[in-house]
């Protein structure tokens, strides 16, 4: 096994097992569409709430996507093969997360302009939303990976994973929606964006190592 064959294999797996990704995206779409119907369809309300709605829906969709990230690899014995492959486990994990991020976030970003229009989000604010999604979602994936790795050997680990992960998602959601609110009020939002980038970069360093330790513990 090489890093290239691993990456190619993971990409192929996700593309062939479309339903996992589709479920997360359909869930994201349904939450965003149903929210105005359930709360208020007025443009004044929606234009203010749009950032929060899209971010909460995206966070839940990402949670759905990362929850079973290592489950099948654990069940079929592939995780053991990662451990003895001679390749760096944190790097393998980072490659897997990157592919998951790419496959889930690119369609989500493609859908975002349509959803922003539907929620009456002004175009200049939409660009801020886009920035927060690009800079904030890597942190959600990377943090979620640690939870997924920690609970991979548990039969019903999904709830435990949610309990572990949700508190770490809060700063990302708070600073993302904070940046959008600041932009809507005509204030500077560079600080929030910088903090989002910092959280993602810190997660990029910590998550693969923490996840690798968790996977080794789970497999043994």
């Amino acid at each position: 096994m090489t890093y290239f064959s691993f990456t190619k294999g993971e990409l192929l797996t996700l593309l062939r097992r479309k339903q996992d990704t589709m479920n997360a995206l359909i869930f994201f779409l349904m939450v965003v569409i149903l929210f105005p119907l359930g709360v208020s369809p007025s443009p004044e309300f929606l234009s203010v709430a749009a950032g929060g709605i899209i971010w909460c829906a995206a966070s839940l969709a990402i949670l759905m996507s990362v929850e079973g990230m290592f489950k099948e690899d654990f069940n079929d014995g592939c995780l053991e093969q990662w451990l003895v492959s001679g390749l760096s486990l944190p790097v393998l994990i980072l490659l897997k997360v990157s592919i998951h991020w790419l496959i889930v976030i690119v369609p989500l970003l493609i859908m975002a302009p349509i959803l922003a229009q539907m929620l009456f989000l002004p175009m200049d604010i939409f660009y801020v939303l886009l920035q927060t999604l690009i800079l904030g979602t890597p942190a959600l994936f990377l943090i979620g990976t640690i939870g997924s790795a920690l609970t991979v050997s548990l039969r019903h680990g999904a709830v435990l994973m949610l309990l572990i992960i949700i508190p770490f998602y809060l700063p990302v959601i708070i600073f993302s929606t904070g940046a959008i609110r600041a932009a809507q009020s005509g204030m500077l939002y560079d600080g929030q964006i910088a903090i989002l980038a910092a959280i993602s970069l810190a997660s990029l360093v910590v998550s693969p190592i923490m996840s690798a330790i968790s996977i080794k513990a789970s497999v043994s």
Partner: peptide, 11 residues
């Protein structure tokens, strides 16, 4: 190392 599981990807 060939373990107890097949380590085969079903897709």
């Amino acid at each position: 190392y060939l373990g107890h599981n097949s380590a085969i990807k079903s897709v």
